[in-house]
Design a protein around this nucleic acid. Structure first.
Lengths: 122, 122
DNA sequence: TAGACTAGCAACCCTTGAGTTGCACGAATC
DNA sequence: GATTCGTGCAACTCAAGGGTTGCTAGTCTA
């Protein structure tokens, strides 16, 4: 089951190799409502700590830390230590990858749709 | 835990009401690699059936059907019966909502970054 | 009408993931 | 130097989700 992408090689040849995995990590990261709240909050403040976030969310500090780790794994967040606290900064670059994935799929479908429309018209 | 978004009302006031839920459904739908493969395949063929998809994927027909139901729940797929088979068609409109969510967050962060940069410069 | 093909429903594993608590360690403060 | 504050790590619970098998029902065809 882990090689669904690779196993579907006949399908996945459309240019996306591991870009799919990158986009997938972003999608998985943004699939959780708590994580979306964290990201939104990070988009407002330049940097924050896990404890500060936990103070504004109905979950524990450790839960927030887990989410931040996952976000860091997806490349959406960067960490930097400042004394005894670690501050988290939003790095929205991977969002671009995800957007590209979606526009690619949507665009391909639009092209297919237009082709079908033309075929019906003739 | 289910009202994380609402509970974070102090945060979520940035214009997104249930648009967050819509985008969240899209993200959750695209978080699974199998579902991404299904979507990519649907972007190539105008319509398909669950059995046809199952023939090209390493999973059973019922698993594909579940994924298609979830995609339909997110509004990414529409169904139409044709005789004894149900054909699935891609409806990429919700992708736009998701893209808007991401660009909004990214844009807000960019603005915040620029403001910070200006503040440092002076 | 009998048989093949398609889809839908339900019950059932088993893994993942979100969340918790508890504890131990480095950094500031007094 | 002792204490507090902020993190990090580990173990654990519990619900959700991906996948399977088995069966039933509808539709086309021979």
């Amino acid at each position: 089951m882990p090689d669904v992408v690779g196993g579907a090689s006949g399908l996945g040849a459309g240019g996306g190799h591991d870009a799919d995995l990158l986009a997938g990590a972003v999608f998985a990261a943004l699939a959780d409502p708590t994580r979306r709240a964290v990201v939104r909050e990070l988009s407002r403040q330049p940097t924050t700590t896990a404890t500060a976030l936990a103070a504004e969310l109905p979950i524990s500090r450790q839960a927030v830390a887990k989410h931040l780790n996952l976000l860091a794994g997806a490349g959406l967040v960067a960490t930097e230590r400042a004394g005894r606290e670690t501050r988290y900064r939003l790095t929205p670059d991977p969002l671009e990858q995800a957007v590209r994935w979606m526009t690619e799929v949507g665009g391909q479908w639009d092209r297919r749709l237009e082709r079908l429309r033309r075929h019906v018209a003739e």
